[in-house]
Design a protein around this nucleic acid. Structure first.
Lengths: 136, 136
DNA sequence: TAGAAACTTGATTAGATTAGTCAACAATTT
DNA sequence: AAATTGTTGACTAATCTAATCAAGTTTCTA
């Protein structure tokens, strides 16, 4: 039931950027603060950029900043974008359902559905703002 | 946030055994019913045996059966035994805590702790009996 | 002796991480 | 104003690790 390191790292980076008030900060600096390996962080920021969560500027004094208001960045969405559905099994995923040969009559499906509901309810009602302001 | 296939497969096997009323059933039969690859299932059953969840009998007409009453088999424990802690991150795991260099001041920890609580509350209050009798 | 589980080992695959190169930009130099 | 240089992000490939799956061998029991 682990969150992948990719998701954890992405959130660390967003939190870091959220505390910079739109001032640019370089990948290297983010890496120092978040303890995420530089090259891996690079890939993650790229992915966050494609999804509009961050913006970048190249060249001297370039770097990254948030691309959205922290109140508009929903943690559940970030996780989904970076590491796939929140649901513990594809057969109960709403955002990216996968059929399963057992399916009907599967006694586990209702349980996984409950797990998904609990996780989604939590992460879809938490924003980056909530984390930064320690509302949670 | 996935459950590993190991955990899913183990639960499928236990559900299958739970419906046999202590009659022995071979790995191959279990594999047919649960669609779990035979050789992988073998390893999983071995692990379940070490933890007392199942019993085996060798030789002709041998096979597996449950080692405990379905009401005593807690889903959360099965998952923990097979794929490790329920917590999404080691830093919030109660059963197998791992320290993290960020730790104090980490804004994510409280969130992960909530996730852990929700998952654990659900899976630790569900037994194999509940699944088999469709109480959930 | 035949059928079945137990066990060992290796192959395959996917995820995580690291390494290295290329392209853009801004300040500096000429 | 043009060329140069250093800083930075963008991108690709290789390495490492763990999960998953497969095959074969051994041991036990009717």
């Amino acid at each position: 039931m682990k969150v992948s390191s990719k998701g954890e790292y992405a959130l660390r980076a967003l939190i870091c950027l959220g505390g910079m008030h739109s001032k640019l900060i370089s990948i290297e600096k983010i890496s120092e603060k978040t303890l995420v390996p530089v090259h891996y962080l690079e890939q993650i920021l790229l992915q966050l950029k494609r999804n509009g969560y961050v913006q970048s500027k190249r060249g001297v004094n370039g770097g990254y900043k948030l691309g959205k208001n922290p109140k508009e960045i929903i943690i559940g969405d970030v996780i989904r974008n970076l590491e796939g559905p929140l649901a513990p099994m594809g057969c109960v995923s709403i955002t990216s359902y996968e059929s399963c040969p057992l399916e009907e009559g599967c006694l586990l499906k209702p349980l996984w559905a409950l797990v998904r509901d609990k996780i989604a309810e939590l992460l879809d009602n938490t924003t980056l703002y909530d984390l930064i302001e320690r509302k949670i």
